[in-house]
Design a protein around this nucleic acid. Structure first.
Lengths: 343, 343
DNA sequence: TTGAAAGCGCTAACAG
DNA sequence: CTGTTAGCGCTTTCAA
């Protein structure tokens, strides 16, 4: 906090050589060993450390990458962030976290703010994507990689997963374990994941020949435990003929936990009376009792892939857009055990 | 990704006025309304957005603040990050997330890297703090606020909580609810929180007059569920005389969940046979079944306080160091209910 | 291999 | 109120 930092000019003077030679010596490019030694010593002595601001201005490169999500509290995004970090930091990039809130407009504003040049690239996972957002991304002055569905007819780099297929895997698993009346607990339909998962459930219901009256769906206000609990109460209420669901496919782990709680409130056991599946394979679901059968969407892998896409794009701005797809993977745990204890 | 961005010079030319007037007009300081209008129009037309790199170099200010923690996956840090964000972003600061890993050396390196001037300040929550770290912080070229214990004899701004007192609250609560044999499940003793919590338990044991043979302590390798489960097995094993603990105070929520699982493995009910308390008041603990009685250490409040300390320090670099202490608060939930169901 | 000099985009001191 | 000019710290031509 006290004395001002030494600059390259001061190091140069201290070493008695030119500014240019000093810079070169410090980068090890085209300088004699003697020069390197001399400059290093001077730098050491003055406690010099290069100023990234001057460097950025000159090189037109900030060595920063932004990661933007609606809500950094969501464990899925935390996993992605960790993975992005791990890929990027060995390459000398810092990661700036940005929060968009959950409106498409806020995300669009954020992308527009890239114009101020504080990062070299952006990884964004928009909850809701519209044309305005796609437009803004196309116009962005730096590379943008979208985690979620592919945007703008494939012109933008993207990393996605097939969550519809993931829901299908969950349904198939339940059917194979002998469940017959399977309900779907979804999150908001005006979000990209909400829509994809609904599509997945509808397809699976069709494929398995569920009659419409056995296809019960509830939509929670939000992808949270509390919203899941409220919606699951309705889902698990007895039908007109007194029958009930024997399985619930939830659109994520938080909703699934809401479903487990609702089941218990109704005096039902999990997985004895009702099997429950989640999605995202969060620590929460792994640690919960019963541990949650969940569809992993490979959050870390998606984060890592997005980071690698950033690196590739930064290398070659003209390369064709890449679209990485990470396959979902069902992880079977206690919440769908065939003969459940009644814990 | 296509055309290069417009610069201030281009806006100036386009508006037919000087560079300085353009800058002033855009900042609204000392420019005639006519000038402002003219410049705004030109800027608009060219799609100008100011370059932060040039601005940073000139102003010697990056408008970035770093937040450094050992492990961003920890929910406590995520809460802090969110709070820091909320306080700083209205003031125009971006937040850069950095991961230190859990060695004191890595944290020291990180603080040293502040020399490159990529942020205006740092908020750091070191898991292990030693003299080298304190030294480096004192020498840092930008303000550093420590979340955790106060360092360097109070010369460094800090935000802390009294986790020892928090452990005391948990013990008192258990004693008041009639528990008599209370064990302590701690995390590593070579961490700052581990040591503080141990101190808290020892003090509470003394204050409540626990004889040594009723004071069972186990130390887990790590602050995680898996480590907690392993250590809790030992903690809950019957004593030589066949007696068992009737309560476990855990050093955080993850360890507490490990304790609940260990209890169930041993055929014990929670809270019927064994009451369990956690610490940190995480979402995980709130949602778990049984919901966890936990000591809140005010993660959000600490984050917010740290961010405010940063702002204050940035305003006045010479003001005396401030030390904010956030009091712990016990939140009683199902895991310590007096007459527990045996869920 | 080394040095001199230009200039990245911006703000602010100074003069008019 | 407006314009001219210097310069933040750095990298990189260009000449020697």
């Amino acid at each position: 906090m006290t004395s001002s930092r030494a600059t390259l000019i001061e190091v140069a003077r201290h070493a008695g050589v030119s500014l240019a030679s000093t810079s070169r010596a410090l980068h090890g490019t085209g300088a004699s060993p003697a020069m390197v030694e001399r400059v290093r010593a001077a730098a050491e002595e003055l406690g010099y450390s290069p100023d990234v601001t001057g460097r950025s201005l000159r090189m037109k490169k900030t060595f920063q990458v932004a990661f933007a999500v609606a809500d950094i509290g969501n464990p899925v995004y935390v996993e992605m962030l960790t993975a992005i970090h791990e890929v990027l930091s060995p390459h000398g990039y810092r990661v700036v976290v940005m929060t968009t809130g959950d409106t498409a407009g806020a995300a669009t504003d954020l992308v527009r703010s890239l114009g101020s040049g504080f990062v070299d690239a952006l990884v964004i996972s928009p909850l809701r994507a519209d044309d305005a957002l796609a437009d803004e991304i196309r116009r962005a002055p730096v590379p943008v990689v979208v985690v979620g569905r592919s945007l703008d007819d494939g012109a933008i780099d993207s990393v996605s997963t097939d969550s519809a297929d993931g829901i299908g895997q969950a349904v198939d698993h339940l059917v194979r374990s002998g469940r017959r009346r399977i309900g779907f607990l979804n999150g908001p339909l005006d979000t990209t994941p909400g829509r994809a998962r609904q599509r997945g459930f509808d397809a699976a219901a069709r494929a398995n020949g569920f009659p419409a009256e056995r296809t019960t769906v509830e939509v929670a206000d939000d992808f949270t435990v509390a919203a899941g609990l409220r919606a699951a109460r309705a889902l698990l209420a007895p039908a007109a003929d007194g029958s009930r669901l024997d399985a619930v496919v939830a659109a994520n782990d938080l909703l699934a936990i809401g479903a487990v709680r609702a089941a218990r409130e109704a005096g039902l056991t999990v997985p004895g009376d009702v099997a429950v599946t989640g999605m995202d394979d969060t620590e929460l679901g792994r640690v919960y009792e019963p541990s949650l059968t969940s569809v992993s969407l490979g959050s870390s892998e998606r984060g890592a892939a997005a980071a690698r896409a950033v690196l590739a794009r930064l290398e070659d701005g003209e390369a064709p857009a890449q679209h990485v797809v990470i396959g979902p993977r069902l992880l079977v745990r206690e919440s769908t055990a065939a003969e459940g204890s009644s814990r």
